[in-house]
């Protein structure tokens, strides 16, 4: 079976926006996308859209939490509604809890949460089959800041050295924010991640997570 690229985070604003994205996603070479939608009406229509546009659609939920209790509350019964659960930690305890918890698939690393990525977090993620997520549009928005760029490069060094599971997603809210899989690989190479690791971040690791979810 040929593995194709997977975009793990697309967040359309409304139904029309989602259809525009679905039209282009297939052209870009994605087989599966994880969509984050708040409206419950749209959630029911995803199955029909899946058949129409020949793209597998997963339901995704992103949780932003500062305290452990907040995260626990929002994780309760979440796997019944959503396929992919990602957590954006805003403190060390939340980051550790997210890495340990079996319901959490991805831990987001962006401008606000990059400081909570360290060696023990990486070891926990490896142990509990989680993965780090790099949302490219969030990263690009802050790449002009020197402090963020230095932090990012330092963390990529950590990633290349200890080799935790990493995935990349576009975090696109419209068509013009989408990324081609080759562009994703190229960008990761630009920030210092080796080519083999970059390719696995776009294709292999997301596939592993999806097979784990769907069984």
């Amino acid at each position: 079976m040929v593995k194709k690229a997977i975009d793990m985070w697309v967040k359309p604003k409304d139904y029309e926006n989602l259809i525009e994205i679905l039209k282009i996603v297939h052209k870009l070479g994605f087989e599966t996308i994880a969509v984050e939608i708040e409206e419950k009406k749209l959630m029911k229509e995803l199955n029909n859209l899946e058949r129409e546009y020949k793209v597998k659609i997963l339901r995704r939920k992103t949780i932003v939490a500062e305290k452990e209790e907040e995260l626990r509350k929002s994780l309760r019964g979440i796997k019944k509604l959503y396929d992919v659960v990602a957590v954006k930690p805003l403190s060390y305890p939340v980051a550790r809890f997210a890495a340990r918890d079996g319901r959490v698939d991805l831990v987001i690393i962006d401008n606000d949460s990059i400081r909570y990525l360290d060696l023990s977090e990486i070891r926990l993620l490896e142990q509990f089959n989680g993965a780090l997520e790099l949302p490219l549009n969030h990263i690009i928005a802050h790449i002009g800041k020197a402090r963020f760029l230095t932090r990012l490069i330092n963390k990529t060094r950590l990633i290349t050295r200890y080799d935790p599971p990493v995935i990349v997603s576009s975090a696109a809210s419209n068509v013009y924010n989408l990324w081609h899989p080759l562009q994703m690989i190229g960008f990761l190479m630009l920030i210092g991640i080796p080519e083999s690791k970059a390719t696995s971040a776009v294709i292999v690791e997301p596939f592993r997570i999806i097979t784990r979810i769907r069984g």
């Binding site: 990324w179 081609h180 080759l182 562009q183 994703m184 690989i185 190229g186 990761l188 630009l190």
Partner: peptide, 8 residues
């Protein structure tokens, strides 16, 4: 590949 990344 870097060039493709920059285009992105």
């Amino acid at each position: 590949k870097l060039m493709i990344g920059i285009l992105g």
